[in-house]
Design a protein around this nucleic acid. Sequence first.
DNA 1: CAGTATCCAATAAGATACTG
DNA 2: CAGTATCTTATTGGATACTG
Lengths: 109, 109
Amino acid sequence: MAKSSSCAIEYTLSLIAGKWKTVILYHLFHQPVYRFNELKKLMPDCSQRMLSLQLKELEKAGLIQKKVYPVVPPKTEYSLTKLGQSMLPVIKAMDKWGLDHHNQLNKEP
Amino acid sequence: MAKSSSCAIEYTLSLIAGKWKTVILYHLFHQPVYRFNELKKLMPDCSQRMLSLQLKELEKAGLIQKKVYPVVPPKTEYSLTKLGQSMLPVIKAMDKWGLDHHNQLNKEP
DNA sequence: CAGTATCCAATAAGATACTG
DNA sequence: CAGTATCTTATTGGATACTG
């Protein structure tokens, strides 16, 4: 984000680049609300730290929102904002492309 | 690409992540063939080195192909492969989203 | 024209331990 | 439960100069 992008697509990419952001959005499209540890379980290869960072960046980008319940033990809920929901076509297109072209997936005997 | 992705969308992202890849694809959708320096001119903020690297990765991913003419001075042409063309919905969705939501673009007086 | 080579800076990501 | 802190490594990107 150092330089302003000169191309629309660059801007879009800047918001969803990062190893886990699209995956997080993907999950939130399939279930509207997730807690931190639920997401963690869905993404076993994503460390707690990375999940935390990526959620923060998505929140900063305005794509997701976080609701914190002041209870003990803590409870937080992540969900898509309106803006995040508008990303659905992008996520869908990427998911479809991956399903169509990633031969290593869903090819178990 | 160290670990195999467990999610289709992760795979898609892995192929188009990188600061300039989607932009290159975007241009190749609007004009089927480009030479190295033509792309360079379209992307003034992308260094020659980066352009070269990103083109190489796109080629390795099978999304673009390169035709080299054995002439002096050298002439190369880059174009989308069939696989690259199949990425159109993804690029289009990202472009549209950027146009719709990046307020800093196309707002000059 | 279409790149490489080299060197360096910045950023992203991983591992592990700790906490309100 | 939902994170931080710290340290380290890996990857990416940039500047500049050079070449077949």
